[in-house]
């Protein structure tokens, strides 16, 4: 026994491209998830009772089933209903939709946190609905939605590892491949575990920083 990290590090080009792919699917997937989640929450708020009720079903189904099963259903089942996607777009789509269900709940709570009177005041002054969302609701809910959003982003980063199971060449897949070739699987896993850990800690740090910047004007919440 004895661990040899040098053989892994000698494949740094492959590793770096794997890390880059992980960061790419993570960032794009999280942004898409937040965007879709925001649109869903907005539709639920303004679309009437029926839309609100109808949208709870997919949200609860996505939140109640494992991401792995959703991913396999889309990637392996998709072609049977005319949805043949390559691994990367399938992975991105699955990740975005999965995250969107959670972001929809985060933004719903955000919308609910804004006192109705603040919206009424803007309505009386002639703000359009879009102006109210952009200038009143979003900035007011920002402080509340940032911590859970950062948390969700971190969860999504960890979920990107599952994309290796449908052959997206992100870092878990790259490291597994190198590890098997070089008979140094454990070393490869330890190395990428450290990379994930650093990314998670960085994301948390960034989130706390944003929270601090935003809270400066809410010393005593009125």
């Amino acid at each position: 026994m004895g661990f040899d990290f040098d053989v892994i590090l000698s494949k740094q080009d492959q590793l770096i491209s794997g890390i880059a792919m992980t960061i790419f699917v993570w960032v794009v997937g999280t942004l898409l998830a937040a965007l879709i989640g925001f649109i869903v929450a907005t539709a639920r708020r303004y679309g009437g009772v029926l839309v609100d009720k109808a949208l709870t079903v997919p949200i609860e189904v996505i939140r109640g089933t494992p991401f792995l099963v959703q991913l396999f259903l889309l990637y392996f089942g998709g072609p049977y209903i005319g949805l043949s996607l390559d691994a990367l777009p399938a992975g991105l789509l699955a990740l975005s939709v999965y995250g969107a269900a959670y972001f929809a709940e985060i933004f719903r709570a955000g919308y609910q946190s804004v006192p109705p009177g603040h919206v009424e005041a803007a309505e009386c002054l002639g703000f359009t609905r879009i102006q109210i969302i952009r200038n009143i609701l979003l900035p007011e809910m920002a402080l509340l939605v940032i911590p859970p959003s950062v948390n969700m982003a971190i969860i999504l980063l960890k979920e990107t590892a599952l994309l290796s199971l449908i052959t997206v060449p992100e870092m878990t897949m790259t490291a597994s491949a190198i590890g098997s070739q070089e008979y140094a699987f454990v070393e490869a896993m330890v190395l990428i575990a450290l990379v994930y850990w650093v990314l998670v800690e960085l994301a948390g740090l960034l989130g706390r920083f944003a929270e601090k910047k935003l809270s400066r004007y809410r010393l005593a919440k009125a």
Partner: peptide, 12 residues
């Protein structure tokens, strides 16, 4: 263990 994917932990 909160900062790394469960999949990586299991493979490891």
């Amino acid at each position: 263990f909160r900062g790394t994917p469960l999949l990586v932990q299991l493979l490891l």
